[in-house]
Structures are given as structure tokens and as C-alpha cells.
Nucleic acid binder design. Structure first.
Lengths: 148, 148
DNA sequence: TCCAGTTACGTGCATATGCACTAATTTGCA
DNA sequence: TGCAAATTAGTGCATATGCACGTAACTGGA
């Protein structure tokens, strides 16, 4: 037990954020494990699915919306491409760009993952409160999207 | 610009947490770059320093307080040990355990890092609000330490 | 005392994360 | 038109993260 090093208050916003992020990531990882997706992969697939109906995003656009480095996105897509969930093809209007989209299998995987994801989502909100979680999410997203 | 895939609300607590975590980590990484520490390394050094005055933590205890996997802690300590900031020695009362502590150089590094860390800390709180940040930290730490 | 169960750690594997540097392409201005 | 500047992506490197599996050491009861 224990592991309470000091009673001094913990002041680092970054440290608190990362700790919570690790804890919650593991919760979602466990929930998604039965279908072979990690929390990060799941988030990525869902994010791509949010472009449905509009032009497929470039790597750069996807990186922006994921608040991720461009090169990180490219690498994180590798396993998903290998497993047939996403397709990456060069843009016809700009040969530098690559467009990312879900395959049929990818769309199906997102649908399949939903109940597992929901389980983690509910577990979190059972502990933290659903309304509190909604507020927290908004705060976190405003931090994430802070283009200051 | 742009990269707003959909106007549908973003519901995933885990996704929001990870996005915010990445954004803020980069803020702290940049601030700490001049002294050659990453945000994660800085947090780790500070966490170890919080044991000052009491028995040095074992890898297991440190992992607990960092909300990190045991093996992750061990590996993250490697660069810090290599650079002479932390010492890892076997426990004399339990030969399975290893105790982690700061070296003199490590203690000095924590002191040296403070103004750089403070700069990131203030930048964050300038944008998010100091009081709001304090509340957010408490929430994040309660999530991180949720032993449910 | 001795062994079964528990505990603390290390290694191999796979993914996650971002920076510096490089290559190809596009764009805008002279 | 033509080239300098900006944009988009890829590679190499280093660290971050956790799981499965294996090993050594401790602990408690028969």
C-alpha cells in the first residue's frame, strides 16, 4: 500500500494530467482488450470516422485534430493499416499529401468496439460522475485545442 | 487551419485526457528543454525528491506513486541514472527490492529546473486560470489515485 | 525445517510520442 | 516563366508505456 511520499501538495499540472491519463488509459485499454484495440488506436479510428461525409483528412489534418505530432500519427496508423482498418492514399490534387480513411472493416470495427468502449466510459463516469465528466471533458478539450 | 472533422460532441473521456496530456506535455517539454529534461523525467525527479527525509522508495512504491507500470519506471530511470541524477541500490533488508534516490547532482538538477518548470506552470495557469488549475489538479489526482 | 504461495524485479515485444533532418511538391512573386 | 519560400511527408533517434513471461527472494504454515 502506501506510497505517499510526502504530504506536501502536488502542484504540477503536467504531472497530474499525465498520471490521470495513464490511469484512465489503462481502464480503457482493459475494456477494449477483448477486441484487440488499444485506447489510442480506438480513439484514432473514431477520430477518422468523424470525417465521414466530408473530404478524408490528410495526415496533417488528422495530426492537428488528434493533438499529435505529424510523425506520430503516421506511425500510429501503421498497425491499423496493416490490420486493414484504415486506408492511406495519396491525394490527387496535391501529390505531397496523403488522405486517411476507414475501410469497411475499419467502420465495422468502430461499431464493434462501441459496447466495450461504453463499458469503460460508464465505469469512469460511475466513479467520477457523469455531469462532472462532461465538464471535465470540455475543460480538457479546451486545453488540448488551445492554439495560444 | 481547421481540422474540425465533425460538429458532433466529443464524448470520450480517455481521448480528451490524452489529447490534453499531449498538449500540456509539449508545453512543459519546451520549457524544460534548455536544461535537457523532458516533462516526464522532470516529474520523476520531483517525485523522488518528495521522499526526502523518509526511507527511499522501492521501484514498486515509486511506480505506485507515479501511477506507472513497474517496468516503465525501471526503464524511465535508466537515462536519469546514466546521467547521474538518480541512484538505484539494492535494499539491505530485502534483496529483491531496489531503492531509488536522488544523487547530489539530481537534487541540484531539481533546483535548477524549478524556474523553467515554473515558467510552463505559469503559462498554463495564465491561459486556464490559477484557481481553475488547482481544482483541475485535485480532480486529476483523485482520478489517478482511484484505487477502485 | 521445507515447500507452496506471494512478492519484487528483469527481459522481450509492441505500440506511443516527438524532435531534427531530409526529400518532394506546391505556391507566390519578381 | 523561374526560382525562393513554404508546405507535406518520411527516417533516424531517443524516450515513454504496459503486458506476458520468467527468475530470485521472502513468508507462513505443515
Amino acid at each position: 500500500m502506501a506510497a505517499t511520499p510526502s504530504s506536501r501538495p502536488y502542484l504540477c499540472n503536467c504531472g497530474a494530467l499525465r498520471k490521470a491519463s495513464r490511469r484512465v488509459s489503462r481502464l480503457y485499454d482493459e475494456a477494449l482488450a477483448p477486441i484487440g484495440l488499444g485506447s489510442s488506436q480506438h480513439t484514432l479510428l473514431v477520430e477518422i470516422s468523424r470525417w465521414e461525409g466530408s473530404q478524408a483528412p490528410t495526415l496533417w489534418e488528422l495530426a492537428e485534430s488528434m493533438v499529435m505530432d505529424r510523425t506520430t500519427i503516421a506511425r500510429n496508423l501503421k498497425p491499423l493499416e496493416r490490420d486493414g482498418y484504415v486506408a492511406i492514399r495519396p491525394s490527387k490534387t496535391d501529390r505531397r499529401s496523403k488522405l486517411v480513411s476507414l475501410t469497411a472493416a475499419g467502420t465495422a470495427k468502430v461499431a464493434e468496439s462501441k459496447p466495450y468502449w461504453l463499458q469503460a466510459q460508464k465505469a469512469f463516469e460511475r466513479a467520477f460522475g457523469a455531469k462532472e465528466a462532461a465538464v471535465l471533458r470540455e475543460q480538457l478539450l479546451s486545453i488540448a485545442n488551445d492554439h495560444a
